[in-house]
Design a protein around this nucleic acid. Structure first.
Lengths: 135, 135
DNA sequence: CTCGAACCTGCCCTTGACGTCAACTTCTAC
DNA sequence: GTAGAAGTTGACGTCAAGGGCAGGTTCGAG
């Protein structure tokens, strides 16, 4: 598939896909005319990249990490070097701390939302539209 | 206390503290000479600000949110407006999605770390201390 | 063959939370 | 009163993941 379709199917902009390529996160075949040509695997890969970005890893780490992840069909194509393991361990710990942090923040938000919702003295012009439980 | 001490005690740079002030996240009294003077409450507040930044909220949202949080000593000084509630609800949902994402990423990291660790060649340096389940 | 959609490579711009330096003032210990 | 630590404002730099535009090329249906 070409870049437009991949963008649509993965929900990521074409710009980002080209950027991923410069970061060596995503390779593409080329048509004789120079257009990028992706296989089906690309969709999955792009989603994975997004997930890792969302977790706060930078391009370099992701690039190192990707070949060490097991693919949809099974085996990882590389094993992490000891130094990479160290870095990933640090990332994991950071992520764990971040999760704890997020849970706290979420709970704070819940409380504020909750307070405002059954609240009491709603000031001028209230209308409270959002129910507490879901969005 | 002055800015240096607050920075040390909260683990945040002086630059950040001044920045917070421009963003109206943190107020300070001033000495006759113009130096900032913080009360004890500031330490807590700064930590809170950091936590919210870590959760991906921007300055504006944090500024709106802070007065709605209950303080160490009890009551919030404001109640969220309906519009703010909407925004916070959106944030909360985003955070929940992010948490799910982070858990996935962490598990991926754990797997890669694990694979590399029994993998075989565990060489010089360290030897992975944390078991899979906990931080 | 032709035309518009889709794609290509640069290249500069943006955003946000700071880092950093400069030039100056205030505080404090002696 | 004086040195030097600590503080002040202001302005510019940074970093990373893209956005967006310009100017040109390729693709593919008719």
């Amino acid at each position: 598939m070409r870049i437009g379709e991949l963008a649509r199917r993965s929900g990521v902009s074409e710009r980002s896909l080209r950027y991923y390529e410069t970061q060596e996160l995503l390779r593409a075949e080329r048509t004789p005319g120079g257009h990028r040509d992706y296989g089906e695997w690309a969709v999955d890969r792009v989603v994975r990249i997004q997930t890792l970005y969302a977790a706060g890893l930078n391009s370099r780490k992701i690039a190192q990490l990707l070949p060490c992840m097991r693919d949809t069909d099974g085996r990882p194509s590389e094993v992490a070097t000891p130094q990479l393991v160290d870095e990933l361990t640090a990332e994991r710990d950071r992520i764990n701390r971040l999760i704890a942090d997020l849970v706290r923040s979420r709970d704070v938000l819940d409380e504020v939302i909750d307070t405002a919702s059954h609240g009491a003295d709603a000031p001028a012009g209230r209308a409270v539209a959002a129910p507490t439980g879901s969005a």
